[in-house]
Each structure stands twice: as C-alpha cells, then as structure tokens.
C-alpha cells in the first residue's frame, strides 16, 4: 500500500484559514488569546493549540506585489526524524504515512524531537507541569476511518488535495510541466528531509513563503542510524580492547617492578 500525502497548491490557496479552524475543531483544541497582526497571520506562529497555521506573505518585486497564503503543519517525513530520535518510541510512522505522536504516556519530555524536527513543526504545551508535545497527526483517526484529514475536507478551492503520495508527486510534476511560466520549478517535500508526505507547489519561491529551503535534502535518520549502528560494535569491542591493554601494560609494569 502506498503512503498517503497531500498536495498543497499555493496558487490555489485563498487564505480563508478554514483548514486552520477545521484542525482546531477536529482536534478539540482551545482558542488562544491573540492580538492584531499586521500581516494577518494569527497566531503569529504555531503553538500547542495551533498545530497547523496559515501564514500570509506579501512578496514585493519591482512595483508588483503578490500575496500568498501557505498552510504549515507537520510535513510527515517519509523517514521522520522525530520518530528516529525518540528514545522511548513515543512516535509512530504508520503504514498510511502519518507520523503520529502515538504514545504520549511514555514520553519523557526531553524535546529532542522538537529540536531535531527539520521543519520545527512540533509544539510543546509549556504552561503545564508534565508538559508534552503535540503535532499534526495527519488526522490519523480519520484516515483509519477512510476519511480525509479535516483540513483537506474543509478546503474550498482544492488547494489541498489528498491522495497517494506517489500519484500526487506525479500530478505536481504535471501541473508544473503544463504551466512552467506560472509555477516555480520546485516541489517542496519531494526531497526535503528525504521526502515528506506533504508536497507543495507554488508560483513564488518557497523562501518567500517562509519555508526553510535550506533544509537537509536527504533523510536525516539515515545518517543518525549510520552512526548508531556502530554503537553495539564499539560497546563490545572497546572493553575487550581495553582489557587487553590492561593486561598487557600490567604485566609490563610488573616486569618493570621486578626489574627494580
């Protein structure tokens, strides 16, 4: 079974923020207190109760201005770093493609997942003593019932399209190829962090949408695992090596002692 994904076409997003509200609705997240923001992005950044956020971006070039809205949430890496760095397996990467913070009860609260997330899309409930993190779950509880994620369901213009990731990737390529003058030739999420389930296409460069285009282009877990693989070997071989040294130098020291 192929993994699911969502194709976000920024050129079709009208910034209605239905997705942001639908997400809160479905996940029963309380509203947070905000104040006016000049760019209308509100709250100004993601937080524990806003695990998806529509950011508004004005792009001024010469005399022209462009205004784009882009929804940001967990991108659901194909090989999620958060899953990889969690030392208690609080995360799950489901066969459907969702990266889910599935076992909060065993979470220690070390926040390595937050630090290591290449997109900084994991949020913490800071105001609680035994605080834990929260992230977009791809509406996993809807996926298993055969429903689309709440945000996709609510999108009026089709800016969010749910489907199999490989098919969506193909469609993204087709959309760009059939309209090369319009689209910026980059599918964000195709390669970022080794590929993500959420894919974005846009008619403006992604850095103008506040996306980190400097993100690692390969799977981060591949590297951490490459390192981790060595640990057991070292754990066994080093003591043996040290013991050998111990024995050897000891004997030499004793011999030297006898020499005295």
């Amino acid at each position: 079974m192929g993994q699911y994904g969502v194709l976000v076409d920024v050129t079709k997003c009208i910034g209605c923020r239905g997705c942001q509200t639908a997400c809160k609705n479905w996940n029963d997240l309380p509203a947070v207190k905000t104040t006016f923001t000049a760019d209308w992005t509100n709250p100004p950044e993601m937080n524990f109760n806003n695990i998806t956020l529509v950011g508004f971006h004005t792009i001024e070039k010469d005399d022209k201005v462009q205004w784009r809205a882009a929804k940001v949430q967990c991108f659901h890496c194909l090989e999620p770093t958060c899953f990889e760095v969690c030392f208690v397996h609080a995360y799950n990467k489901t066969p459907e493609g969702a990266v889910v913070y599935a076992n909060p009860e065993i979470c220690v609260g070390c926040r390595y997942c937050q630090l290591a997330c290449p997109f900084h899309n994991i949020q913490m409930k800071w105001d609680e003593v035994f605080s834990r993190v929260r992230k977009c779950s791809f509406c996993y509880n809807r996926l298993v019932e055969g429903l689309k994620p709440a945000c996709v369901t609510t999108c009026p213009t089709g800016a969010l399209k749910f489907g199999k990731r490989d098919e969506l990737l193909q469609e993204a390529k087709e959309r760009i190829n059939s309209n090369p003058d319009k689209y910026f030739n980059h599918i964000y999420g195709e390669k970022e962090a080794g590929g993500t389930s959420w894919l974005y296409i846009s008619d403006v460069p992604f850095e103008d949408l506040g996306f980190n285009t400097d993100v690692f282009q390969k799977s981060i877990p591949k590297y951490t695992w490459k390192y981790m693989k060595k640990a057991p070997i070292l754990a066994v071989s080093l003591p043996i090596f040290f013991a050998a040294l111990y024995a050897y130098t000891k004997r030499r020291a004793e011999n030297e002692g006898h020499g005295h």
């Binding site: 509200t21 509203a31 207190k33 006016f36």
Partner: peptide, 25 residues
Amino acid sequence: LIEHYQSGALTRNQPYLVELMPEMF
C-alpha cells in the same frame, strides 16, 4: 473579513474566529 460575519454578533463570540482576527484595525 472572512473570519467575521456582518457586525460580528455571532463571530466575535466564537473563540476560534476571535483568535484569527482578534481586534479592530
């Protein structure tokens, strides 16, 4: 604004919408 409906009688009492567009500007 999309977040508010008319005089806001309904929407300015809706926490999610107030969160999105909290005050006059």
